[in-house]
Amino acid sequence: MSFGFGADNVTVAGRLDGVSLNCRRGMITAICGPNGAGKSTLLSVMAGLVKPDSGQAVMGGRPLAAVSLAQRAQWLGYLPQTPEVAWDVSVEVLISLGRLPWRDAPAAEAQDAIEDAIAAMDLQDLRHRPVSTLSGGERARALMARVLATQPGWLLADEPFASLDLAHGLALMQRFRQQARAGKGVVLVLHDLATAMNHADQVLVLAKGRVEAEGPPEMALSREVISRVWNCPAHWLGEPGERALSIGAPAPLAVDFRQGFV
């Protein structure tokens, strides 16, 4: 498999308009943007789940549509934004579903991958629990572990940190970093700009289906871009790598109560 993967001039009626994104293995790419920007649509086009009206997802110079579904399933691990679990299976059974694309792999290999995913998402104590008894965050960890169990070349995750607590969020980010260091690709849709700023190697900013900025986080998420795209005054605090975002203009603190009650 070649190192390039991305979307080439993709248009999806009403949702994306000529968007291109080039990701490389060994990097964490973040897709950011306000609500309705087309982030999730772009990710599902890249996962081969939404067929664009024009343009295409490309993997190593080859159109993704030309790759068989079985092979795609082994290469691309996809975490949907609103994952569902229809039956009340145990955490372990849920994670084992991630091995479905590798139907011919030896059982020992499958077991290793499942154990690795369980350890990565700290699910040892929950492995026999039915999914219905889990909290939202625990469930999100189990669903992420399902994607990790596939051991795909590319991880495509839509808001993977959304309901994780601090420690598990950090552990997952370290896992993504480790995947990238091992030469795999990581593409994340992120709502939290600070996470993208501190941890991504490359950021794509979308708004209303168009690319507004692209590049290293310090550039793509500059205060100018944020105020223009999110329509919200903001500035970064702290040092690179541990940035925090302060939003809103400093408001005048003095209030005239006599006027307020007229």
Binding site: S44, A47, G48, L49, L69, A70, R72, A73, Q74, L76, G77, Y78, P80, P83, E84, V85, A86, W87, V89, L94, L97, G98, L100, P101, R103, R146, T150
Partner: peptide, 20 residues
């Protein structure tokens, strides 16, 4: 059977797991 197992995760996720 295997495709039905994948459907447990919903249609989109099932497709990403190789279900046609």
């Amino acid at each position: 059977g295997r495709d039905l197992d994948a459907m447990t995760l919903g249609e989109m996720a099932a497709r990403s797991l190789g279900v046609e």
